[in-house]
Design a protein around this nucleic acid. Structure first.
Lengths: 350, 350
DNA sequence: TGTTAGCACTCAATACAAGAGAGTGCTAAC
DNA sequence: GTTAGCACTCTCTTGTATTGAGTGCTAACA
């Protein structure tokens, strides 16, 4: 395999990638010789570049232009050449402050994470969880709104709240709802969905036989709240940031990317791959197996609490994105998000 | 005033506007003579056009181009020439179906409305309410999550649910939270915010003196839930639809408009003006007093329930938008939304 | 007096050609 | 193995001519 690169080739490749990342312009041999002192002349660099091109690390948009990195080039850079960046202290402060303010629920934490990610990097952020509302049943409450409607609220121990308006027969009074709530709470305390389904329904049915209708609706909402399928959830941040990237100056490209971002299922598919991976993962260009994203890269990592993987966060940018920065930010954010989730799920005393 | 237009001038103006709305190209005298049979030659139309331009109804991008309507021209069209469009029966079905499916809460209804508006028209939709969570206190529930955290949930009679995780001292047990919930519910039943603040705090304080901390947080959340300031809320639908309009082919224009859409307060300012207005209102170009929207128009109307204005809905498009369709859709949607809200707030039996 | 045909004029858009500039690959000298 | 030199390629810019849509004006016509 000709996959090993000598030191000079590495330096040339590094110079090309760094320059292209910051300027978005194809970079030529002279630029490299001038800006990055490698101690050799442009001609020598040209020779190296010809080699690198043959090996597939860089390519030429057209004969008289400079070179740009190929997907393979970026891959080599990320794996072997890149020096992980660092967050400025203001950026770290921004994150910490945001995570210190009052928490409404898990959803809000994840939304905030998306916002932070995009603010700091100027890329589009994706926050994925496949545990939304998963976990154990904690509480159900039926609240009488008016003679024909009640609000049904389900809380899980993971701090997710689901609610839904349900139609009720006029014969039911506020006190009846209170009774139903109490019975349901007693019977289902701390149960997970499977248990609730299989063992308890009969028992509860017996006790609340006359309120079959309501009971059915309650079971529906609980199922929905705790169900495994419904656990996937995507939060986006800074969608419009991509408009700032020169590669998306054409409306057409923006439209195809946006239409993908609207399809949460597809994003979830990509994000779920990394939730059990250690460290930060990059998918470059067509490594994301999706036609609409072939000009994009994603930098992702999973977050967890108590040793349990909960989801993943990621950044979407052009393949020309600043991987060093992205890696640093994604790593920093997963670490902090994991801490916050830990605290949220087990209580502050850890 | 030269503001009265004879029949032929009206026809010419109408032809120009209709053509420009559908083609987005400046329209010349010959096109009009060919497509819209007015029984006169292009030369005559040119004369009329010169007059219309002098009067300010149309303008010329440059000497050798056709004419495009001015803001004043659109205004005249909307006020005097436009025939209100109609929804196709599929579109009506779409709306009815969407409003028939199960309702989670008010927010969901409004979100759905935004989606529908944008789907049907292909413009960007804004749904505004200034009554979100307003109304009377209905229920509060404290749910023990873990030794240091509880979930606090407030329900208003308008069917809005607010929740928030609160830190609790470890000494508090689930049963204590239950007690607090019960006391708060008894004392505050059916109260509006002002009453809760002024008369009851002392009484409750007395009863729950030992739980001051929790009580404070409860009051905070209740205030937040019922407060007048927090009542404003904006839902957007079909933001990306504007990308389909040829006038937004330049990324720059898109960016300025999007940055406006992100500022909910500014949108609320525009939308609040029409909540007490009868019928459908159009604001054309700089009639929206906002620099960033000078190339846009909005078509808006208020919705209400039980004679009480609740908010407004609207469409954002280029000044060249299809007003006839927009008026029809906005009117149809407000009517239906008002019905749904009515049912939601008072229960099905009206 | 209103309408129309005809015509010269304007101006954006398109196409085309020339030139500049950036960058390359190759060869030959060091 | 490295470098200077040079011819070559290709894009991008600039300038110029052409085209075509559309106008305004004038004069003839009903």
């Amino acid at each position: 395999m000709g996959l090993t690169l000598d030191a000079r080739k590495q330096n040339v490749l590094l110079a090309i990638i760094q320059d292209y990342i910051s300027t978005a312009e194809p970079v030529g041999s002279r630029t490299i010789a001038r800006k990055y002192k490698l101690g050799v002349s442009p001609a020598t660099i040209r020779n190296e570049m010809a080699d690198l091109e043959e090996m597939g690390y860089i390519e030429q948009p057209h004969t008289s232009a400079g070179r740009i990195p190929s997907g393979m080039g970026y891959r080599y850079y990320v794996d072997h050449l890149m020096k992980r960046g660092e967050l400025s202290s203001e950026e770290e402060k921004l994150v910490l402050n945001s995570y210190l303010t009052k928490v409404q629920d898990i959803g809000q934490v994840l939304r905030r994470t998306g916002k932070l990610l995009s603010q700091i990097t100027n890329y589009t952020a994706v926050v994925f969880t496949n545990h939304y509302g998963k976990g154990k049943f904690k509480h159900i409450q039926l609240v009488h709104l008016n003679p024909t409607q009640a609000m049904m609220i389900v809380v899980t121990d993971a701090g997710a709240v689901h609610h839904q308006i349900v139609e009720i027969p006029e014969s039911i009074r506020p006190a009846d709802l209170e009774t139903i709530s109490t019975v349901l709470n007693q019977k289902m305390q701390g149960m997970s969905l499977e248990n609730i389904r299989l063992t308890l329904v009969k028992e509860i049915y017996f006790e609340l036989a006359k309120q079959k209708h309501i009971l059915n609706m309650a079971m529906d909402l609980i199922q929905q709240s705790l169900s495994t399928e419904g656990g996937d959830k995507i939060y986006l941040g800074g969608i419009f940031n991509i408009l700032n990237q020169p590669e998306f100056h054409s409306i057409e490209k923006v439209k195809t990317l946006l239409s993908l971002l609207e399809q949460e299922a597809k994003l979830a598919e990509i994000m779920v791959d990394v939730i059990n991976t250690d460290g930060v993962t990059a998918k470059i260009g067509d490594e994301i197996e999706n036609e609409q994203m072939k000009d994009c890269s994603m930098v992702m990592a999973g977050y967890s609490a108590g040793g349990k993987a909960l989801g993943s966060i990621g950044l979407i940018g052009p393949t020309r994105m600043d991987y060093a920065k992205a890696f640093a930010v994604v790593e920093y954010m997963t670490r902090n998000l994991s801490l916050v989730m830990e605290r949220l799920l087990r209580g502050r005393g850890s």
